[in-house]
Nucleic acid binder design. Structure first.
Lengths: 236, 236
DNA sequence: TAGATTGTTAATCGATTAACAATC
DNA sequence: TAGATTGTTAATCGATTAACAATC
């Protein structure tokens, strides 16, 4: 029955699984593409197919947040895009800081790709004095010690950590002390931070290892016998 | 009972969950750190704690691949590192190609970080003739059309895709046609590729969206009432 | 030996899929 | 109307946790 009394706890109380939120981002990406291609509506079956997901899963995921579809018709792309952006918090533009200006950090400063996804890199930080006050791709650079002040002034709540592994924990602590609420960590380290800070980690080596595992597994399977069985030979 | 008859199907037949393989990479990273810190052995409880996982989970994950531990003692760091590397396929060095030399692609060429994790970027490809034959950080650059030949010559089985979204599918098709078996995709697109190719995708916007979601969710929870309940008001 | 810790089975928990009444 | 497709419940599947005998 639509409308009527609430039959679910209000959002924020019911925990939404991490995997659902990830897929929400993928739905958004796909919807935007679909809309650009001139489609007004999309069904859960269509949306799922392009992402390799079942139609039930698409509907179930969306149902965590409300009723967005039209039975018999599907979902309106533009409407659902707005709804998902609202849910993800990307209906507003988030100013983001990049901390650590090595190869990766500098590349991120130059990457305008996610500005229209709701994120704009507005400032970079480093401790190398030769880099300070030398804007990169128009983005101003400050010494790390100025992070608390700049973050407050500019309302920065998200930061990207791109320093060497050896410095990561220490710098992360400073970022947290500056009041940053969300951290995208590119350093290959498991950070220990207060539960009040949200952390997402991306480790390039880990991703490549998933690939090499898949490749050798497939190769050994096709060869018939397995190189993967690294267990010791039966001792008897 | 150790040794004796096999009580599990041989590896390659039993499917290992993706999540287990991801955690294997994290175990490896942590073990290497532990070893560097001078520790010979580590227990499943210790290993789990630094990664926020339960001791049972650590043991269960490792047990997918064999018996590596010593009851009463734990795991030998150096030994387990070797075993995991063997499982992930990183006991050998994988030559890797980077395709697309924008900001991100160039940053990856300069990043030596994962050479000692088993991956070495040995060549870059682009279609911009101004970039061809201008080595970046000592890495040679070729035109994309030379990918099949270079891949064969150098035994390259893994590639990193760092081209704009608009070109991603087309270039991915060429990469696959060149015989590449594993693709790390940085373009914000869901690629449609034959099942014989392994794909891992990293989308920076998606990662940032996980953060913004977590941050607004927490903020609205702390504010007591929810901005997240985007469902329509009851119509009655 | 006593204490510690593994490998593994059984119990629990959570997430995905299937099915279908409600609806456009 | 008939056909399509949603939102949601129940059934299934898979992954995590707890417990403990075996072992060092």
């Amino acid at each position: 029955m639509r409308g009527g009394k609430r039959d679910k706890p209000i959002a924020g109380t019911d925990e939404v699984p991490k995997a659902v939120v990830s897929r929400l981002s993928l739905y958004l990406r796909e919807l935007q593409r679909w809309l650009r291609a001139g489609q007004d509506t999309i069904s859960s079956t269509q949306l799922g197919k392009t992402l390799g997901l079942s139609d039930s899963q698409v509907r179930k995921d969306l149902a965590y947040f409300g009723q967005f579809g039209y039975p018999g018709r599907g979902y309106r792309c533009d409407e659902l895009i707005q709804k998902i952006k609202r849910i993800l918090g990307t209906d507003k533009l988030w100013p983001v800081a990049v901390v650590g200006l090595g190869n990766l950090g500098r590349a991120l400063l130059g990457y305008r790709g996610f500005t229209h996804q709701g994120f704009q890199i507005v400032v970079g930080f480093d401790i190398d004095v030769r880099k300070i006050d030398q804007p990169i791709d128009g983005v101003p650079i400050h010494h790390l010690r100025e992070l608390p002040e700049v973050a407050r002034q500019r309302g920065i709540r998200l930061a990207i950590l791109a320093v060497p592994a050896s410095a990561a924990q220490e710098v992360a602590d400073q970022i947290v002390a500056a009041g940053i609420e969300g951290l995208l960590n590119f350093a290959p380290v498991s950070l220990t931070l207060p539960a009040s800070v949200n952390v997402v980690s991306v480790d390039l080596a880990v991703e490549l290892e998933q690939l090499s595992f898949a490749v050798v597994k497939r190769a050994s399977r096709e060869a018939g016998q397995s190189q993967l069985d690294t267990r010791n030979e039966p001792s008897v």
